[in-house]
């Protein structure tokens, strides 16, 4: 599903260039659930941004679902993001003046899906994350866990190939985190490829594979025995 080959990325700061990614080689198969771990500054966010086509690598190749991701114009990148990727952010990034339903239907709007169909799909996805009853609430009326569920529903709505989650549980307490991870695992079980960025070991252990980054290189890449989040939720 995802092939990264010798990805380099550096940022030109005022004094000296900062080499963030120093040759990343990574291959992720369909249906995998990969945790990317690393201390802050290890380059994990940069890697996610490159995966999410929000940023471009200086060198190396990136192939997503057999589509080479090179030299994208902003418009093309936006279309690919819409088609291939779903984003879940640490700070939820919901649009504050839109209801849960409208937030979820937004990516479908950009796919030019007719309104009726869009709302049905959005509703389905909210049902899927267990928020079928709260579709008319704006984000400020939802708890942190609920907001993140809406964000997940939104990420799933466009039926992406890969779900990219950047510290999805970073702003949530442990119990809510596990609830959410249970949901993410469930979605993964249905076949969706997942990339989760986290620095929490317990969250990482709930994935199927852990990639460790340090100073811009992969220092460890291992498959693990997945811990079921459901077992930790009463």
């Amino acid at each position: 599903m995802i092939q990264l080959n010798n990805i380099h990325k550096s940022y030109n700061l005022k004094t000296n260039p900062l080499h963030v990614l120093k040759g990343i080689n990574l291959s992720i198969e369909e249906g995998e659930m990969v945790a990317i771990m690393g201390a802050s500054g290890s380059g994990k966010s940069t890697l996610l941004n490159i995966l999410g086509m929000l940023d471009e690598a200086d060198s190396g190749t990136y192939t997503l679902d057999d589509t080479p991701i090179v030299q994208l114009s902003e418009t093309k990148a936006a279309q690919y993001r819409n088609k291939f990727l779903g984003f879940v952010f640490q700070s939820f990034n919901l649009i504050s003046y839109k209801t849960a339903l409208e937030n979820v239907s937004l990516p479908l709007y950009y796919q030019k899906i007719p309104r009726k169909e869009r709302l049905i799909k959005a509703k389905e996805n909210l049902d899927k994350v267990g928020l079928g009853e709260r579709i008319d609430h704006v984000p400020s009326e939802l708890s942190g866990g609920e907001k993140q569920r809406v964000a997940i529903a939104r990420a799933l709505a466009s039926e992406p190939k890969v779900l990219l989650a950047d510290e999805p549980t970073g702003a949530l307490d442990t119990k809510t985190s596990y609830d959410l991870m249970a949901l993410i695992q469930e979605i993964n079980e249905q076949g969706k490829t997942m990339v989760v960025i986290t620095h929490e070991h317990d969250i990482a252990n709930m994935c199927k594979r852990i990639v460790h980054l340090r100073d811009g290189v992969i220092v460890e890449d291992k498959k693990i025995k997945q811990v079921k989040a459901k077992d930790h939720v009463e």
Binding site: G52, A78, R81, N82, K83, I95, P107, Y110, S158
Partner: peptide, 8 residues
């Protein structure tokens, strides 16, 4: 956010 969600 809109652009991350696919707004050109």
């Amino acid at each position: 956010i809109r652009r991350a969600l696919g707004a050109t």
